[in-house]
């Protein structure tokens, strides 16, 4: 996947990612229109973001409440992958369970806002085309990839039950 970097700081909580006032929304397209709206560059992001773009953030991305609207909205608005120095536990789980790819990278200082990256989420290779540099991120585990490939946790478990019933 290839896209442009949108940079954010440390401790971006789920209320910045998806403000609480939109919690009643259930339509995914409508939800997507508010992704990152509570951050200090929310308006600019929503106007400018293109399909395939990439969020790069600092520590503890997705902390705060456990709302799953957060990863769903980020994915809905077209973000292909979120790279951060660390993720809050529940947000990390929600990404895997709902199918938003994430990568963990300590050296996010080497990625600038607006850089064009080409990313292989399975190997963790990040090719920074703007700076002509390659970085290596920590990828999700095998088990997490399996869940994502199945279409999320609920689909994964459904397949698994079927498989057991059919004696596979």
């Amino acid at each position: 996947m290839k896209g442009r970097v949108w940079k954010f700081g440390d401790d971006i909580d789920t209320d910045q990612i998806y403000p609480g006032k939109y919690l009643p929304l259930t339509d995914k397209k409508e939800m997507a229109r508010h992704a990152m709206e509570g951050t200090d560059r929310g308006e600019e992001f929503i106007k400018g973001v293109k399909d395939g773009d990439i969020i790069v953030a600092g520590k503890n991305f997705g902390c705060g409440s456990s709302r799953e609207h957060a990863p769903v909205a980020i994915r809905g608005i077209g973000i292909s992958v979120v790279i951060a120095e660390s993720f809050a536990r529940i947000f990390h789980r929600n990404c895997v369970n709902t199918g938003l790819p994430i990568l963990i990278l300590q050296e996010t200082q080497h990625l600038n806002d607006g850089d064009i990256l080409e990313i292989d989420v399975t190997s963790g290779k990040i090719m920074n085309q703007t700076q002509n540099k390659v970085l290596k991120a920590t990828t999700l585990s095998q088990l997490e990839f399996q869940i994502m490939r199945a279409g999320g946790l609920l689909a994964y478990l459904r397949h698994q039950n079927k498989a057991t019933k059919e004696g596979l």
Binding site: S66, N94, V96, N97, L153, Y156, L157, Q160
Partner: peptide, 20 residues
Amino acid sequence: FGMGTTDIAGAMYKGKLWFR
């Protein structure tokens, strides 16, 4: 463990979940 709604729905169906 506190978790999101998808986790709890899956947990209720299967009685197991993934963890690191």
